[in-house]
Computed example of a mutant assay.
Amino acid sequence: MYDLTGFQRDLLYVAAGKDEPHGLGLKDELEEYYETEVHHGRLYPNLDTLVDKGLLEKGELDSRTNYYQITQRGHREIKARREWEDQYVSPET
């Protein structure tokens, strides 16, 4: 996960929290978080990168809509990232 951009990590985290989300659903979630528009030209190439790296699987809902599902490797990468982060950031007490 070290080689992902912050946007790609956020995209992976959002996809992990959804059941087979489609691109526009992921876009909406990220726009809410970033409080700005996420353009298609940014979203879909980054989704393709996550698919190419084996972190997401891409499937077809219909002839115009794809869905994205996190892979087991994607889950492992998120878990490893969270463990790494926990070394440096402790929960507030």
Rank of each mutant, 00 (worst) to 15 (best):
R76L: 15
F7P: 00
D28P: 02
I70S: 03
D19L: 10
V38I: 14
L61K: 04
K27E: 05
I70T: 08
T71I: 10
T49L: 10
K53L: 15
G25H: 00
K27A: 00
L12T: 02
P21C: 01
L47Q: 00
L55V: 08
Q87S: 08
L4D: 05
P45E: 04
E29P: 04
Q72H: 13
E37Q: 12
Y2G: 03
V38N: 01
V14R: 04
E35V: 09
L12E: 05
G59D: 08
L56A: 02
D52R: 10
P45T: 06
L55A: 05
Q8Y: 08
L11N: 01
Q72K: 13
G41N: 06
Q87W: 13
D52M: 10
L56Q: 01
R42E: 09
R82L: 15
G54E: 05
K27M: 10
E37I: 15
G17T: 02
E83A: 14
L12Y: 06
G74C: 10
E92I: 15
W84C: 03
E32C: 07
G17D: 03
P21A: 00
E20K: 06
L26T: 02
P21H: 04
E20G: 00
R42A: 06
E57K: 11
G59M: 07
V14D: 01
E20L: 03
R64N: 08
V38K: 01
Q87H: 13
L26K: 01
T71E: 07
T5I: 04
Y34M: 06
K53Q: 09
D10V: 05
P45C: 11
L47Y: 06
H75Y: 14
T65W: 12
G6T: 06
Y88R: 02
E57A: 12
N66V: 05
E29D: 10
L55H: 05
L11C: 10
R73P: 08
V89K: 10
R76E: 15
E92H: 12
L55E: 07
E83F: 13
R42F: 12
Y44V: 09
D62E: 06
H40R: 02
Q87E: 12
E83C: 11
D19C: 03
P91F: 14
R73H: 11
R82G: 09
H40V: 06
I78E: 13
P45H: 06
Q72N: 12
S90M: 15
G41H: 09
D62T: 06
